[in-house]
Amino acid sequence: MIKVGLILGIAGACRTDELVNLTVDDIEVLGSSLIVKIPNTKTKIPRIFVVTDVGNMLELFPKYLSLRPPHVKHKRLFLYYKAGKCSSQPVGKNTMGKIPSVVASYLKLPDVACYTGELNTPVLTTSTCLRRSSATLLADAGVDITTIKRHAGWKSTTVAEGYVENSIENKTKIANQVLVGTNTSAITKTVNVSESNIPSNINFENCTNVTFNLNVNK
């Protein structure tokens, strides 16, 4: 349950109550990916996100669903696991809120007690941990503000801007521009090659996120 909750929470930037209220009908297996629907959100705007089979993560979902007792009358996805088997009792906010602290403890991170979902405490809540992780990963990958905003379901761009401004990727680009004077703008280089004109080498310097488009004319 913890692994599935962690994957869904980060992949969809989910809040605690969104994970708690997920039902088996909200998840659709489509080939090598999962389509997850979040019909009820804090902002009243439904969201849909996809979980792809990176690192064989999708193997966990059928395994978890296979543990579901056949007599369960409700459709809530997450169930308590007791005495070596799943019960019919759905997982509540308090249990779901412990996911970050359990993961932090497993990873031997400092200040494990800070990763909690308890209410009215000045610590990182589950929503904060999972949504912050999701937004930070996107920002560090160079994703734009609009995409982060839509992914997490934020109405305002203020929060998304904070993640982009503080991302390691963005700060690295700024450092290169300030200290080295590296131009990080997009540059297109076209090289025409024929049988009579084959270059011995093509040099690229100070490049990141390079894409090669190869057109072969027979």
Rank of each mutant, 00 (worst) to 15 (best):
A83K: 13
I35F: 06
P62Q: 06
P46Q: 07
V50T: 13
P39M: 10
P46W: 08
V72M: 02
V91L: 15
P90V: 14
I48R: 14
N40S: 07
K44F: 07
K63C: 06
F61W: 11
N56P: 00
S33Y: 14
L67I: 07
D53Q: 05
L77E: 03
L77V: 15
P90C: 14
L79V: 09
H71V: 08
P69E: 04
H74D: 13
L79Y: 01
K93R: 15
K44I: 01
L67Q: 12
N40M: 06
G92A: 14
R76T: 04
I38D: 05
P62D: 13
K63P: 04
V91Q: 06
K37R: 15
P39Q: 14
V36Y: 12
P69W: 04
K73H: 02
P39G: 08
I38F: 06
L67R: 04
L60T: 00
T41V: 09
T41P: 09
L34N: 04
I45L: 10
N56Y: 05
C86P: 01
V50S: 00
Y81M: 11
N56C: 04
L65N: 03
F78K: 01
L34Y: 11
P39V: 15
T43N: 13
I48N: 09
K73N: 01
L79I: 11
V91D: 01
K73T: 13
K75R: 15
V50K: 09
L58Q: 04
P39Y: 12
R47Q: 02
L58C: 05
E59M: 05
K93H: 10
F78Q: 01
G55I: 07
H71E: 09
M57K: 00
V50N: 02
N40K: 14
F61G: 01
V91E: 04
K93W: 00
R47K: 11
Q89A: 15
K82N: 02
R47E: 05
T52K: 12
V54A: 05
V51P: 02
P46Y: 08
F78W: 03
P70Y: 00
A83C: 06
E59A: 09
T41F: 07
I45D: 06
K37A: 12
F78P: 01
T41S: 12
N94R: 11
Y80V: 02
R76W: 10
K85D: 03
M57G: 00
K85I: 00
S87K: 10
E59K: 10
S33E: 12
K42P: 09
L58K: 05
L77P: 07
F78E: 00
I38N: 06
I45Q: 14
Y80L: 12
I45K: 15
L34T: 09
A83P: 00
H74N: 14
L60C: 02
L58S: 01
S87H: 05
Y80C: 07
L77C: 13
E59H: 08
V72R: 01
V36W: 11
R68H: 02
K73Q: 11
V91S: 00
S66L: 03
V51S: 03
R47H: 05
D53S: 05
Q89D: 15
N40E: 11
P62A: 09
K75V: 00
P46C: 10
T43G: 05
Y80H: 14
P62V: 14
I38H: 08
H74P: 02
L65V: 07
V91R: 04
S87C: 14
P39K: 06
L67V: 03
K63D: 06
L67P: 08
S66H: 02
V91G: 02
Y80G: 11
L67K: 10
S33W: 08
